[in-house]
Each structure stands twice: as C-alpha cells, then as structure tokens.
Design a protein around this nucleic acid. Structure first.
Lengths: 351, 351
DNA sequence: CGTATGCAGGCATACGATTGCGTGAGGTTG
DNA sequence: CAACCTCACGCAATCGTATGCCTGCATACG
C-alpha cells in the first residue's frame, strides 16, 4: 500500500488544505516547507516554532500533500527543470552523455526535458522558442547551427543558464565543454601514415557542421604535414548515420584507385563503411582500413574491433551538467569557462 | 538575425505588455491567442473584430511575445508536456521507442520529460511522486515494479492520462501496449528444438520482472512440450546488461555438460554471451548457439549476426504515444484498450 | 509601569494567463 | 421612440505558491 492511495485519493491537495488541517495560515505552511532550503537568511524565512512545524508536517503527511511545481514556477521563476538539446538520442554517443546529464540532474532533484534536432536548423530554432515559452532553469546545448549571438539573445531574454558542447562557440556568456577534435583528427591521421604506412587516405566528413569542418581541417593538415596528395574524390560526405557511411564507402570503393584507409567523422559512419566493405568482400583492415570517431560501445563488439578516436561522453555530460548547475546555483565568473575534455586514439583491429 | 534579438532583448514580455501596446485589455489578447484553437465554441471565445485581431497580432510580433507556459499550466491545467518513464535510455531497445514517442509528441507540439529508473523500484516510486508535483498531461510508463493499483491511484489523484507498456497490467483505466513475449519465447525455443535439433538449451532470464517471468514460462513450456529435461543450472539470471550476459555465459560454459544453445532474455545479454564465448574460444553457433530478444541494431552488425525475437519498438512507441494523445484529446472508452504488437523470430547466423 | 525588542504567524499581493460576467455602442424591431 | 438584441471588449476572479509587511504577544529594560 503506497501512501498515495490512503487518503487524498481524489482531487488535489493544496497548501491551503494543509493550512486548514493544521489550523495555520497558508503562508506558514509555505515557510515550513522552505525551512531546510536555506533559500536565504533573508525575509521569506521567518522563525517558526517547533510545535507548529511538527503540526504542519504531520498534516502534510496525512493529506499526502505535494507542492505543485507549476505554481511554484510561476511564482518563483524556478522550474526545477533543465532542457537538453541534442542532435539525436539514437546516436549512442549522445545518449551516454544524456544519461550522465540525467543522473546529475537527478541528484539536484531536477527533471530533464529532451529535444532531438536531427541536426536540423529549424529544429534548433524551434528549441529556442520552446525555451522562451516554457521557462527552464538551465539549458544544455549541442548546437550545430545556432550561433553564439542567438544563444546570447536567448540568455538575455530569459535569464536562463546555458552551457554548450562545442568548440566553435566563443562567447563571454556561454560556458563550453569541448573535445579538441581537430587536433585529435590530425594526430590520428598522422598515426595512420606513420605507424601503418597508409598514403591513400580518404576522409568521410559532414559538411556544414562545426565538428565536421574542424575534423576536415585536421585531416588536411595531417596529409599536408606528410606531403601527401588529397585527390578531391577522397573527401566525401555523409550525415553521421550508418547508411550514409555505407553510401560513401560504396563510392570510394568504386574509384579506379580506391583508398587504403578511410577516416570517418564518427563511428556510426565508420560502421557503415565496414558493413559496405563486407558486402563487397573487401577485408578490413587488409584491403581497406577504417577509423572512426567517438568510441561508441558497438565499436568494441564489432568484428573487427573499430579503431577510433575516443571521446568521453560520460565525462562531457558530467562536466556540462556540473557547470550548468554551478551557474544555476548562482555562480558568476568574469568570462565564460571552457572545459577541455581530451580525445584519445584507441587502436583495435580495423586498422 | 533572428527575430528574437531585434526588440525584446531584455526582460520578459507578458500579455499585459502586448495589451498596452495594442491598446486593448489583456483579456482581449488572450482571446486573440485562442482563436485558432477551437478550444470550445463556448464562453472563452468571444467574437473579436478583424481590426483588433490584426492590431494585437502585430503587437505580438513586434514585441516578440511568447505565452508563458508555466502560467498557462497553472491556470488551465494543461501543461503541454508528457512524461516517459523507462528503465534505461542506454538500452537501444528503449531509445528507439523513446525516439518515436518524441516525434509523435512533437507533432502535437508537446515536450517530453524522460526518467530513467534503472529497473529500480524506488525510482519508479519517485517518478510517481514527481508526476504529482509536476503536473503533466500524459504519462507513458514501462513499469517493472509499479502495480496497476498504484498507477490507478496516480490517475485518480492527478487526472493524468496514462498508457503503459506491459502485458501484466490489467486495469480498466490503463491502456496498454504489449508484445506477447511469452508465446514468442515458446515458439522460438520450439524452433531451436525442431529446426536446429538442440536438446540442451539454457535460459538466461531476469527474475522478479514481469517480462522475465513470462519468457521463462514460455521457455519452460517449450521444453516441456518437447519432453526435454531442464537441469536447474540451465536456468540462470542476469539484469539485462551485457556484463551480466558475460557472467552468466561464463557460468554455463563452466558446467560439466554445458548447453548447446542459450536463450537470452534480451539482446544485450545475448551479446554478452557471445563476447564471453569468444573469449573462451567457443564458436558461435558451432559450439554454442545464442538467441536473443529485442532485435537491437547491433545484433545485425555483430559477427555472427544475432538470431533474435524481434520486437518493434518503433511501432510500440507509436502506438503508445498515439493512444496517449487520444486520451489527452479526451477520448473515453468503456474499458481500457490493449494493443498487441506481435513479435517475430529473425534468424541470423548465431543459431 | 511604560516602552523597546524579538519571536510567531497572519494578511495580502504578485507571478502570467484564462474565462464568466458585465457593459456601452450601434443597430433592429414593434 | 422605447425596448431589445448583438457585437466587441473590459473587469475581475482564479489557478497554487512565495514573500514583504504588519500585528499581537511575551519578555526585558530603564
């Protein structure tokens, strides 16, 4: 028998009901509720006698009262919710991050609202409007299109705390967490060249996205460092999905001189590459090596194991949420913080 | 330049501001807003002159006004949010479902709040309390511990619409979506026996959960149907995680006479089984066959492909969300509906 | 004994939107 | 021309909570 079914099995129980039951004013109940909260030593928290506190608390329990957060939000401008905007929960890379964020939020007794943008600009825009309509205390963004100034406008307008994942944002207001993926890409490609002796390395990117551009730069630099040519057919593009990896790989393997290695901008596309390679009876890594980015769990279990540049989504989620709750808690710093979570090359059998 | 940054770059814009700007009463603005909504032909919607409507709409645009949903919730008891309680987003099976739910919700212009329970009873309880504090219009549950009566209590208390995934719930109030996984298990095990000639089949279950029990029943029935013995060491248990699959497989392979096939209660555990088998240089399916449940995408890409009983999470998500929004929309039916989404055996190389 | 001080708690308002009811202007009808 | 109706809109209460301000009482102090 849960307490819920005992008493107030019908209708809502409000503070007024509790007040009547305990023979005090509604405001007193409110004060009892906010006792432990250390809201402020200030004005709202007046002294309440032990006796009254107990009476009220008992009434609360007897009636099964729970504060209504909608009302609380309206009054106090605190919603006990944060919103997370990510590209796609289905991407394992993100849902590890989201999972961690949710856990941190839970510790703070916050709820989490999740929006998928599918990398679409209009959805990112819609998300921003959503935040204006529905106030939340904090926002975690993984923006692909949203600019610093748009985010800043949102912050000014709503006063919401914002933390973002993304190296490309430069703003004095927005804390960011980032992996230096450009450099990591450069290092990984260099490794392919030096340690594995590849010269014909293709790049599978995602144009029009900040990470895609950074990684492409890293790739080009590494090739340039090694004085290697980059035929333009070697620079292909996808959309982060497995299917787009398959398509791109098909193109590459159809070339007169196909690459001996492919650097894919994320693991999903890399998995797609390997799937396509298998279909065509090309052996990985003997015929073509594949390297990914993210280190999703499937890469470990895949046969052959996927060499990849690991990002640490758990740590990123934790940092994002941590920074956000510091801001929500009122932290002020002169200029925004930038948290660097390094990447790491993980060598498995696919290279 | 987004419209946002143009004007109201500071402070909130309320209906009163719009009203002042358009030289009408605040209530008029509200009525203009609710024009397209067909809320009711009733009282709130009074006739408004074309002229005024236009003036108001212009003011809204000029000031960049967005209605505050917190206020709206408080007044109207409509929150434009649904909550989803699932075991764990990290489980690919669930996040496909969640993803679909989010899409449907978006079409209805609803936001989605997600809670992970990690299969823990206390978290399910906490979720229920959360719904009492923070009113939402609808709830989608994947309950492992919550009983019908507890859910009904929640519904009575908050008036929230509820739809659940789970065959074991029998209530006149709760619409349910379910896969008949018990029968599907029985059929799959029977298939293992008849078509593949296995006699020593182990079962990797998850006790104390409704699906776990149903599937165990299905397994036992199939074995019984075929007059096969079930040594008690063949009935092992895990917790739906890959690691627990590895552990269970380790135990099974340590037996004096290990099984020739393992039926795992979900794909994650099945993948764990195969991982452990590989570590021990046992070949799948030659030395030991493995069959899973759910048909997660990794099963396709795994080598060897995982034979599994497919569930269709997209369809389930769609049905769940569909039914929920019908209820939110005011649908009343004499007794709760039950939607059956059938399972299907998908044969790959692991058997 | 009269006034200052502190504690406990009540009163009333605000948060932003919805909605029942009232009202004045203009038009219609007997 | 009076009675009445309709249209278009304003007024004010309300949802449940938080909080500034005020009051009543008791104790302390000069």
């Amino acid at each position: 028998m849960s307490k819920l079914s005992q008493d107030a099995a019908s209708g809502k129980v409000t503070m007024r009901d509790v007040a009547r039951h305990a023979r005090v004013a509604q405001s007193t109940v409110s004060r009892v509720l906010s006792i432990g909260k250390g809201t402020n030593g200030g004005n709202g928290s007046v002294a309440i006698s032990q006796d009254t506190v107990q009476r009220v608390q008992e009434s609360i329990r007897e009636l099964g009262y729970f504060p209504n957060l909608a009302a609380r939000s309206l009054r106090g401008q605190k919603t006990q919710m944060i919103a997370v905007m990510i590209a796609d929960i289905s991407n394992p890379y993100y849902h590890q991050m989201v999972r961690r964020i949710q856990d941190v939020a839970n510790e703070h007794r916050y709820d989490v609202l999740i929006s998928n943008t599918d990398h679409l600009q209009e959805n990112e825009q819609r998300f921003v409007e959503g935040i204006i309509r529905r106030p939340v205390d904090g926002v975690i963004l993984v923006p692909y299109h949203l600019s610093s100034s748009e985010i800043e406008a949102l912050m000014r307008r709503t006063g919401v705390a914002v933390v973002a994942l993304g190296q490309h944002l430069h703003s004095d207001l927005i804390d960011t967490v980032y992996a230096d993926d450009g450099t990591a890409t450069r290092e990984a490609v260099t490794w392919l060249i030096r340690e594995r002796g590849h010269k014909q390395i293709a790049f599978l990117g995602v144009p029009h996205t900040a990470p895609g551009k950074r990684r492409e730069q890293g790739y080009l630099q590494a090739m340039n460092d090694a004085h290697l040519l980059v035929p333009h057919e070697f620079v292909t593009s996808g959309d982060f999905s497995i299917e787009s990896g398959e398509r791109a790989m098909a193109q590459l393997l159809n070339l007169a001189t196909p690459p001996t290695a492919v650097f894919a901008c994320n693991d999903l596309m890399a998995l797609g590459c390997m799937a396509e390679a298998r279909v065509r009876h090309k052996r990985v890594p003997e015929d073509v090596a594949v390297i990914g980015f993210d280190n999703v769990p499937e890469g470990t279990r895949h046969q052959p194991g996927l060499t990849t540049v690991a990002q640490f989504p758990n740590e990123m989620g934790e940092r994002l949420a941590g920074a956000l709750f510091e801001r929500i808690g009122g932290l002020k710093v002169a200029s925004a913080r930038r948290f660097h979570v390094p990447c790491k090359l993980i060598v498995r059998e696919s290279t």
